[in-house]
Design a protein around this nucleic acid. Structure first.
Length: 567
RNA sequence: GGGCCUAUAGCUUAAUGGAUAGAGUGCAGGGCUCCGGACCCUGAUGUGAGGGUUCGAUUCCCUCUAGGCCCGCCA
């Protein structure tokens, strides 16, 4: 969890208390879990270490808990910093020790949030480590689908989260511009282009039937018009290039609409042409991880946990897909990335062990390659499944979804559940719900606060940290009541939430947090007046509200969702 | 046949092995002459089935049931 001063101090204090008062047991630092309390009544931080000690010593947790609590109190008594920032430590049955933050700490937190603004919740724990996230990487044979949308939303959010934590993040899109499907695309465009010139040519049975192919064919410049009347090598070469370029334009356009921008685009053909695939195989051969059988070249992936060895060079001399992927990942590491994160669809899960084996054979640690399987997104309309076939041309593109429900709702919808769960996107439901989507609930809290600040200004209360020194602000904040401090206690959790979300690679964690925070604020708002007759109370409450807005904005920004001042 | 993912309220879902399983939506009621009603309050409905490990299981293991996906010298 967090590495900030308070957290580290508290944890080492806890460790000392255990070491000193329970010397016979072996408890390492990693055994001690100190986490954000699940409920505010259980304090701000909790540990369940009592259970562990009790079970090691075969004693009653109640007895251990009381003893440990006293030890912790002693240790805190010796530490000026903790004494100031902690209000109380309690032992609560069945075996938790809960830590409550002091009001002093909470006042400081409000001031810190307002002064740090956009950067509150971030950290430099990444220390500029180069991390690459490769996602979407859809074949350029059609517009992006709903499944790609889900990956795009997740990949982009993860990239934001890592860069917020101080990592140097690269977002990459791998373009599969070689192989049978691309030939098929080229041929389909060629057929449409011949048809547009009035020829009677039939689309092959497995050709791409979508209307976008006709649109692409229409874009073929006039000088080419009658150049490729036959399907031959020259035609193929031209239509592959032209088709990929045009499809990538469509894909980039869709992504742009969705607010996702990639830093780099790497194509499979560029790896092949540069000789990197050959090099990678030669490299593995030198390390003796490649052998020949049935006139094909095989990778000894079984040495690294794969079920069977894999062909890398077919008997006809051409490369398999894994061959390009080996070269691709070798190239990623050579570009200096320390951690690689790949987002894949579930249809590729069987591919994980072979790529990990390959990475291992290349001499890199498997743990540096994290492959996240993003489960499918199935599209429904009126409870009925909408078939999604690129080839048959019958599908709803991501673009249409964005057009129907808007970017914010779409992104939120995609992020609002765990990666592992299948996502059911019912268009009719999404449209119906879009008016009352939870994303608006969160955005609304921020809009309310913006308007509140306008109102405050009109009432003659100007609140900025420029007009109020941190010391003066802290003095004003003494007017906060218990219910307001509960909200502040939630605000101070934000940096830990970000870290948690980066550790479990789930942007969803942030959404859950933001919803809870927004709820607390709305409840509070309905119950109390913020701008009232006592100026210092009004000021304190506005400062609290400003801090809430800052946290909501930072959270939404990481998710790629907007936070308008007016809605 | 082998493997991966999933199963929580009518629906969509949350919960690093911990405390009373938390929300939204829907349903039944109620709330601004007021800083934004895209809001708030009250109520009912619950972990697919069966075993096991553990002080403690929605979470881990096994079996079963149901759904999705994969198992090529395709990409």
């Amino acid at each position: 969890m967090g590495k900030d001063e308070f957290y580290t101090n508290l944890k080492s204090c806890l460790e000392r208390a255990i070491r000193i008062h329970f010397p016979p047991i072996e408890i390492t630092s990693s055994d001690i879990e100190l986490s954000i309390s699940r409920e505010i009544i259980y304090g701000d931080f909790s540990t369940n270490i009592v259970f562990k000690i009790a079970s090691l010593l075969k004693k009653d947790p109640a007895e251990i808990g009381e003893r440990l609590k006293r030890s912790i109190d002693d240790e805190i008594g010796k530490d000026v910093f903790l004494k100031e920032n902690l209000k109380k430590v309690e032992f609560k049955a069945p075996g938790f020790i809960n830590f409550f933050l002091s009001q002093e700490y909470l006042y400081k937190t409000v001031v810190r949030i307002i002064s740090e603004g956009d950067s509150f919740g971030g950290a430099d724990s990444g220390k500029g480590t180069a991390v690459q996230i490769e996602f979407v990487s859809a074949n350029p044979t059609g517009p992006l689908s709903i499944a790609h949308g889900r990956q795009a939303a997740i990949g982009d959010a993860l990239a934001n989260i890592f860069s917020f934590l101080g990592y140097e993040v690269n977002k990459e899109y791998y373009v599969n511009d070689e192989g049978i499907q691309i030939d098929n695309l080229a041929k389909s465009i060629w057929v449409r282009y011949r048809q547009l010139s009035g020829e009677d040519v039939e689309l092959p049975a497995d050709g791409y039937k979508g209307d976008y192919i006709i649109e692409v064919a229409r874009k073929i410049p006039a000088p080419i018009k009658d150049k490729h009347s036959d399907w031959n090598i020259q035609a193929r070469e031209f239509f592959v290039k032209f088709g990929c370029d045009e499809m990538l334009k469509i894909i980039k356009d869709d992504l742009e609409k969705f607010g996702v921008r990639f830093d780099t685009w790497v194509s499979q053909s560029s790896l092949t042409k540069s000789g990197k695939v050959k090099e990678a195989i030669a490299f593995l051969k030198k390390r003796d991880f490649i052998y020949e059988k049935d006139s094909a070249l095989w990778l000894r992936s079984t040495l690294f946990g794969d079920d069977k060895d894999r062909v890398v060079v077919k008997s006809d001399g051409s490369f398999t897909y894994i061959a390009s992927d080996i070269a691709y990942h070798k190239d990623k590491y050579e570009r200096g990335f320390k951690t690689l994160i790949n987002l894949w669809g579930p249809d590729h899960h069987g591919y994980i062990s072979r790529l990990k084996a390959a990475v291992n054979a290349l001499g890199y640690k498997q743990e540096t390659l994290k492959i996240l399987i993003v489960q499918l997104a199935t599209l429904y309309r009126d409870g009925k499944i909408v078939p999604m076939s690129t080839r048959a041309g019958s599908f709803i593109a991501l673009k249409e979804i964005i057009d129907e429900v808007g970017k914010d709702v779409a992104r939120f919808f995609f992020l609002n559940r765990g990666l592992d769960s299948h996502l059911e996107f019912d268009l009719s439901l999404a449209k119906k719900e879009s008016a009352e989507n939870p994303v608006y609930y969160i955005q609304y809290a921020n809009a309310r606060i913006s308007s509140l600040r306008e109102y405050a200004k009109d009432s003659g209360i100007v609140m900025t940290l420029d007009s109020l020194s941190p010391e003066a602000a802290k003095a004003v904040l003494k007017n906060l009541w218990e219910e307001e401090l509960v909200i502040v206690r939630m605000l101070q959790q934000f940096p830990y939430i970000i870290i948690e979300s980066s550790q479990n690679l789930e942007p969803n964690t942030i959404i859950v947090y933001l919803q809870t925070l927004a709820k607390s604020f709305h409840q509070y708002y309905a119950k109390y007046r913020i701008i009232g007759s006592v100026p210092d109370i009004s000021k304190a409450r506005i400062l609290m509200a400003m801090a809430v807005a800052a946290v909501i904005k930072n959270g939404l920004r990481l998710l790629g969702v907007s936070f308008p001042d007016k809605m």
